[in-house]
Structure formats: structure tokens, C-alpha cells
């Protein structure tokens, strides 16, 4: 019996969300009196995988098959299922990402495991039961869910717990092969197109987000959002009306029918705060609202607020961040 952690890597680095997943897995392993093994997917380096020891991982399995660099649903599922069988994993932990959801749902059927996604806290394992807290109603509520059966799969929501770093600890990295054949790569992507990451920070992984709404008046004013985001090392986002009229691409749309984010800092500029938008951001740790309308409902959900014109306030904030150095 052990805990298997699925670690997503990109360009050699372990993704931040996967450092959190590794921490989660190590903590669950400690709760259950066992050790945590990781299986790495994507493009990784041995040195970075060994550093997963800092998150409490004992051993990392890595299949250097080059076709695993890009996400391939069937191949990833088989790889992780094979590792789970080899390790006798009773609990599998992955990120609540597009990869985690695609693989976790298939794995749950293949491994006859119960599955909880969007999990925000460590499990309660008293008396042999296994209960986790997960986000529901698009961020408007939480549900405690009890998982039955011998095997469990947990997809952990980003930024739900802080990755631990125990300096100096290293994990043993072992090469691993799931004996994948051409048939396992039948659904491999024909092409992978990455967005132009001018700001450099991806919204789903971001710790800080600067977001704009209709109050920004037009896409030509977005440099104000981008300047502040750049100064803060933040990702940019927008409300639904903004992506509906194509001022910004839809992948920046945060809300109930867009993406749900939970950064440490969310700065909303010219967004009134419709209930659908709040659902997508209300698990952010600190919310700042800038709006010229003091009655904007967003202020009720905010920690800090400025009642004022975004076109005057944003440059002042950017300047103040630069002054901090």
C-alpha cells in the first residue's frame, strides 16, 4: 500500500500546482502510515524530480518515452495505472487541472476507484472512513464527500495548500516503463499551440491576478491592467462580458462558466461583481476591488477597496508597486 502522486512537468520544471499535489500526497501518506511515490508526466529533468524530496516524496518514477512530453490521454492513463498497480497504490493524488481531470476520470473506471475532484483540504480518515472537502456550486459552496471502496483518487484544487519545502531532502528517481505501444498514442495531439505569454504568468497557475471588466471601456485600455500585472508578477484575467465581446480571449474569462481561480491576490478593476463572477474568484485569499460605483456588489466580497476611476487609480498602483522595488 502506498500513495501515488501524479506530478505534471513542463519544460523540465515541476509545475507549481504539482508541488502542492506532492505535498498533499506526502501528508496523506503520513496520515495513513505509508510513503508517497510520484509518477512524473511531461518534460522533466532528473535533478528537478529529485528535488520532490523537499515536498516529502520518497521515490519518483519517470518514463523518458519522448512521446509523453505532450499530453496524450490514453498513454498517460495507462502509464499512471501501471505505476499504481506496481506500487499497490490505494490513494492516487493529482492536480485538478485539465490533465488531472482527463486522466483521473478514466483511471477511476480502470482502477475501480472512487474519485473526488476540486478537493480543497486534506482527508479526514478517522475510523476507516475517508472524507474530503471539495468545492461545489462553482465556488459558491463546499461539500464534504465520503469516498467508498478500496482505492481513491483525489484531484487537488490549485492553491488549496501551500507546498512544503524541506531543504536538502531528495527523492530517489527511478526509470519506469509502462511498455506503451503505438496504439496508446492513437489520440496524440496533431499540433500543440501555446498562447503568447507576453506577461509570462499563466492564469491557472498564478498567485496574483489583475482582472478587468466592462468598466475598462475597451480593449485599447488593457495596457493599464497589463502594466500593473507585470509590476506585480501577476496574470491578467477578465469578466464574462469582456470575453463575450472579444475584448479579451475567452481563456481569461474568470467566473462560473469560465475558469475558477484561487490566487493569493485578486485585483478586480471595473468589475461590478455579478454573482456568477464572484463564484469564480471567492476562494481567492485577498480580494481588492476598484470601481467608481460605491454600490458595486463586489465591494461586499472584497478585503480592500478603492472607490474611484480605474483610469486614474491603476497608474498610481503600478507606480507604487515599482517604488517598492
Amino acid at each position: 500500500m502506498s500513495v501515488l502522486v501524479v506530478v505534471e512537468c513542463d519544460k523540465g520544471e515541476v509545475k507549481k500546482s504539482s508541488l502542492e499535489v506532492a505535498t498533499y500526497g506526502a501528508k496523506v501518506a503520513a496520515q495513513l502510515g505509508t510513503t508517497a511515490t510520484a509518477i512524473a508526466v511531461g518534460e522533466a529533468t532528473e535533478a528537478n524530480l529529485a528535488k520532490l524530496g523537499e515536498q516529502g516524496i520518497a521515490k519518483v518514477l519517470y518514463d523518458a518515452e519522448p512521446r509523453l512530453k505532450d499530453f496524450v490521454n490514453n498513454a498517460y492513463t495507462k502509464l499512471i495505472a501501471t505505476a499504481a498497480e506496481q506500487e499497490g497504490a490505494k490513494v492516487i493524488v493529482l492536480a485538478n487541472s485539465n490533465i488531472g481531470a482527463a486522466v483521473g476520470s478514466r483511471l477511476s473506471v480502470r482502477l475501480k476507484a472512487s474519485l473526488a475532484t476540486n478537493v480543497v483540504d486534506l482527508p479526514k480518515t478517522d475510523g476507516g472512513s475517508f472524507t474530503v472537502k471539495r468545492g461545489a456550486f462553482s465556488g459558491k459552496a463546499f461539500a464534504d464527500v465520503t469516498l467508498s471502496g478500496d482505492r481513491k483518487i483525489i484531484a487537488v484544487k490549485k492553491n488549496s495548500l501551500e507546498a512544503q519545502h524541506e531543504a536538502g531532502k531528495t527523492a530517489e528517481v527511478s526509470s519506469f516503463s509502462a511498455q506503451l505501444s503505438d496504439a496508446d498514442f492513437a489520440d496524440a495531439p496533431k499540433q500543440v499551440v501555446m498562447q503568447d505569454q507576453a506577461g509570462g504568468v499563466l492564469l491557472p497557475e498564478a498567485e496574483r491576478v489583475v482582472s478587468g471588466g466592462r468598466g475598462m471601456k475597451g480593449p485599447e485600455n488593457w495596457h493599464l491592467i497589463e502594466d500593473l500585472a507585470k509590476a506585480l508578477g501577476a496574470a491578467t484575467a477578465c469578466s464574462k462580458p469582456v470575453s463575450d465581446v472579444d475584448w479579451r480571449p475567452h481563456h481569461e474569462h474568470v467566473g462560473q462558466t469560465g475558469i475558477t481561480v484561487s490566487p493569493n491576490l485578486y485585483i478586480a478593476c471595473g468589475i461590478s461583481g455579478a454573482i456568477q463572477h464572484l463564484a469564480g474568484v471567492n476562494s481567492s485569499k485577498v480580494i481588492v476591488v476598484i470601481n467608481k460605483d460605491p454600490e458595486a456588489p463586489f465591494f461586499k466580497a472584497a478585503d480592500y477597496g478603492i472607490v474611484g476611476d480605474v483610469f486614474e487609480v491603476l497608474p498610481k498602483l503600478t507606480a507604487a508597486v515599482k517604488e517598492l522595488g
Binding site: L115, A141, A143, D144, V145, T146, A302, D303, I306, V313
Partner: peptide, 21 residues
């Protein structure tokens, strides 16, 4: 395979601190 045992609402915010524009 799973069962919801309890629902909860997110904790309420303490209230907004306003800063002069």
C-alpha cells in the same frame, strides 16, 4: 461510489477596508 455527507458555505468576509482614491 461517493456520497455527500455535508454542505457548507464559504466563510463570510470581514468587511471591506476602503482606501481613498
Amino acid at each position: 461510489r461517493t456520497q455527500v455527507s455535508e454542505f457548507a458555505l464559504p466563510p463570510k468576509k470581514q468587511g471591506v477596508k476602503l482606501i481613498d482614491a
